[in-house]
Design a protein around this nucleic acid. Structure first.
Lengths: 178, 178
DNA sequence: TGATGCATGTAATCCGTTACATGATTCA
DNA sequence: TGAATCATGTAACGGATTACATGCATCA
């Protein structure tokens, strides 16, 4: 699933500018299972507009570039329905953290601790974000399910991490645990 | 973290050919948080050998191309220790499945059911793989932790999915649930 | 006899990130 | 005064996937 489809999906919930789409991806319900940068979002929107799948409207602003507000068209809805109508591919999960834990013999106890603490902070941050999304009323049908799924997965990881942290640090050469 | 480092990491647990490395990535402990294809593994190994971070030994075989067995060198160990000694980046999780669940209004009940069933099968497959890894004795220090973490995360997702499956299917337009 | 596993490699292509370019406003 | 937010865009570059090329052995 590419940025093109992602933009179409977000626009299906209401009009938005490229900048706002980026924020949705970073802070919204999409945030914990999708990524995209401006460098891919802006070209995707231009392309989508060129194909008539979205419309553009320039909103004038003082002291800033015009805000380009995109809205999905019926043709865009059709295209979205089409690309989304295939059995989805496998989830992809990449974790430098787990790679590091596997190869812990090569790192210092300090780095080990820093890595674990960062991971805990990341997970807690993600959970907080999901919580916020829950508060805000979501226009999407599956919002609650996605929030529940994300919360379950993230808090399961967090739980294991907190349980095993002391053990992981104790197993290291010298140096006491926290 | 790139395929180069990944190969180095796998070779740190013992010598292997490119083909075997691929199998490790697909079936071993690495499988649920890393991906790589032959198209990236073979060039990475050639590069690594060129830099003296690994050695190559050709094992003759009947009726097949020589098997090239790679082994990490002290220089390779140093390089691995160096690249691994930074606080890891954020986990990256991509899920077409969750995207589809969010946009469920656009898909048919049949596809919905197929997607959920596939996700359940994928998760169960991953869990079975972790279980197998646990049985096999792992040379890596963090193996147990990574297995525990992976199992917790995957089974949390699986639990939610099974709990909400009926609900998800009932929420759809016509068509009865299973 | 046809799929799957073993075994290596290259080239085209895709898709995306990072960095750069520009610049006003607002908050601390 | 310096950072963060708003706002859009391009170009260089990187990194990996996919498809192609080759071919024997084994199992069902």
């Amino acid at each position: 699933m590419n940025v093109r489809t992602l933009c179409l999906g977000i626009l299906s919930t209401g009009e938005a500018s490229g900048y706002e789409i980026k924020k949705d991806i970073e802070e919204g319900l999409f945030s914990h299972f999708i990524d995209a940068s401006f460098g891919s979002i802006y070209p995707a929107l231009t392309q989508l507009a060129g194909e008539g799948l979205v419309t553009v409207r320039a909103e004038e602003q003082s002291g800033r570039p015009d805000k380009k507000v995109y809205a999905i068209t019926p043709k865009g809805h059709d295209a979205l329905a089409r690309v989304i109508s295939v059995v989805p591919g496998r989830d992809k999960f990449k974790s430098e953290f787990l790679f590091q834990m596997l190869l812990q013999q090569y790192i210092t106890p300090e780095l080990m601790r820093a890595a674990i603490d960062k991971q805990i902070a990341d997970l807690e941050g993600d959970l907080a974000r999901i919580d916020e999304c829950r508060r805000a009323e979501q226009p999407l049908a599956g919002a609650r399910f996605v929030a529940d799924y994300g919360e379950a997965v993230l808090s399961a990881g967090l739980r294991v991490l907190k349980e095993k942290k002391a053990e992981l640090l104790l197993a290291l050469p010298q140096q006491a645990a926290e």
